[in-house]
Nucleic acid binder design. Structure first.
Lengths: 183, 183
DNA sequence: ATTCATGCAAATTTTTTGCATGTTC
DNA sequence: GAACATGCAAAAAATTTGCATGAAT
């Protein structure tokens, strides 16, 4: 019963709705020793901890993989999307899976003021994408800066930790809101 | 029906229970133009937006100020602590206040894997304290690095934003967990 | 005085759990 | 075949809201 494919019985020939497709396209070799979010990585990770590889777990993680890194989902959204994708996963299981995958470091919980916990893929350890968020209107920009990654690595190794990922959260006022504040 | 509580001006002459005291002691001059979390800053901020300065709001913010920057609280905890500090603030009001102060940028929400939303003071714009968190056991270390602040400022101004605060979140495996993973 | 915030309790929403059953190892 | 994950529905949290009253400007 080895399972290397998306799922045993559920979505064998469907168009994959661009989700899986995109996921596949987005996973070129990156940081070999830290690439752990691929199906294989999932298998390995689960197995290492004596956890089982179920279609539900694969679907949840697959969903995040198909999302691109910028996006995040709440438990409810994960549930809805899976339903829409013909993948029946109970909300309770979504919660259980989200917790499991987070505790394994495959997903990470985010800090957004949107209400409800949100999760995103935590795979690309050495990718450097950071967030610039307007504290007033919520407008969000992404940016990169190698210096940040370097700082994260320095901090990690300085404390004897092994880096998994680092994200800089910059809270600021966007131009529009600066003006508004002033008024 | 009148409320059963003491009354109008709740804690006028009480000992301030170390919270307020500590808060006061912890607010030396820092970044003059951005120091907005002090009582004065609160007054100004509230006033600017046509919001009222109520004892409840002051207490909630005061509580965070007395905490030091490293710590964060959930709504429930805020409520409990205020009760313990002889400051009666209903849970509903705690929630409303937390939301208000967050939307004003005085507090910020963070989402740690601990369950429940948590908030922390978001005042010291130019302070640079960042987090190194073990994704497996939750162990947390704090560290500083001016380069990070610089990167945040660069990103902000590069997009025309005005920096409020930036925090680097480094997710990693602590030494103990690296060993455990290996096992 | 007027307008808005608070407290209370009820309504909602979010997250967790118990158990019987279906799956993974 | 044994151990464990899932689904369902109920339970427990967490968060929001309606309203009458109290307080801030």
């Amino acid at each position: 019963m080895d399972v290397l494919v998306p799922s045993p019985s559920q979505a064998p020939s469907q168009p994959r709705s661009a989700l899986q497709a995109q996921a596949a396209g987005l996973l070129p070799a990156q940081a070999p020793e830290l690439l752990q979010a691929s199906p294989n990585g999932l298998r390995a990770s689960l197995h290492d901890r004596g956890q089982r590889l179920t279609p539900q777990r694969q679907r949840v993680l697959g969903l995040f993989e198909g999302l691109g890194e910028g996006r995040h989902l709440s438990a409810e959204e994960v549930h809805q999307r899976l339903l829409g994708a013909q993948a029946r996963v109970s909300l309770a299981t979504v919660y259980r899976t989200l917790r499991l995958l987070s505790s394994m470091g495959l997903l990470q919980e985010l800090e957004l003021p949107e209400g409800g916990r949100r999760f995103e893929l935590a795979g690309d350890a050495h990718r450097d994408h950071h967030h610039l968020v307007c504290v007033r209107c919520g407008r969000t920009e992404e940016f990169e800066n190698p210096a940040i990654l370097a700082a994260g690595e320095a901090a990690a190794s300085g404390h004897g930790f092994r880096l998994v990922e680092c994200v800089l959260n910059v809270r600021a006022l966007c131009p529009g809101c600066v003006a508004a504040e002033r008024a």
